[in-house]
């Protein structure tokens, strides 16, 4: 268990060091074998990981990886969480509403004459909101993989879902302000993604995404 964890840490350290410090990653790996033989693999590997993380802001690949993580953890994942929360009934961005069900509840925000239609539409609306959350998680994964083609497909999927939601909610005479908020958030995400993809292309002009990821 300890050795497996140490191996994972040393592999992670190698990834953090990037192409410009590849020799150092290999050096750590070769000394790791000695540390393992002497019974101190975990302490050695943890130290190497700390060294590699401290080194990340010093080189451009490291800065790129850090920026990508900030984009994903700071924007894409919170957007997914927001969509799940909103779908499951937590407070939305529109004041006075507490998620999808309060919006559909007849007599509060909805039209009592459309109560039957709302009840029929609720599962589909919920599925669309949850799919929106899943779409964001898929987008986050693609960004961390630096797979821009997959990220583009995920963004297109999210965009299609938002349009579907907007049309669907408009047909049901529901308040579309939340959807507008998601359109604005998606626009910000797309701008950030496009900057990240451009930066990636500048770092690895060959465009070989798979090999780029292997080196980081």
């Amino acid at each position: 268990m300890t050795e497996a964890m140490a191996k994972a840490l040393i592999a992670l350290a190698g990834r953090c060091l990037g192409e410009s410090r590849r020799d150092w990653a290999l050096a750590m790996q070769s000394e790791f074998d000695i540390a393992r033989a002497e019974g101190r693999p975990l302490a050695f590997a943890a130290g190497c990981l700390i060294a590699a993380v401290r080194e990340m802001p010093m080189h451009e690949e490291g800065r790129f990886v850090l920026a990508n993580y900030i984009l994903v953890i700071g924007l894409v994942v919170p957007m997914a969480a927001l969509q799940f929360a909103w779908g499951l009934g937590f407070p939305s961005s529109v004041p006075g509403q507490t998620g999808l069900y309060s919006m559909l509840a007849p007599g509060i925000f909805g039209d009592p004459y459309l109560a039957g239609a709302y009840a029929a539409a609720a599962p589909l609306l919920l599925a669309l909101w949850l799919l929106l959350g899943l779409g964001h998680l898929r987008l986050a994964w693609a960004v961390l993989d630096h797979d821009w083609a997959r990220a583009g497909r995920a963004a297109a999927f999210i965009m299609a879902l938002i349009v579907t939601l907007a049309i669907f909610m408009a047909v049901l005479f529901l308040d579309c302000r939340d959807v507008m908020f998601h359109v604005a958030a998606l626009a910000v995400e797309l701008i950030a993604l496009s900057c990240s993809a451009r930066w990636h292309r500048e770092l690895f002009p060959s465009g070989d995404v798979a090999s780029c990821w292997q080196t980081i």
Binding site: R21, W24, A27, M28, E31, I34, A35, E38, A43, F44, A45, A46, G47, C48, L49, I50, A51, R54, E55
Partner: peptide
Amino acid sequence: RHGYDLMKETGLLSGTLYPLLM
């Protein structure tokens, strides 16, 4: 000199030694 031998000789941990060497 090798990294691990330097660690043992100086008492530095790998997290300190490697950034210094780099």
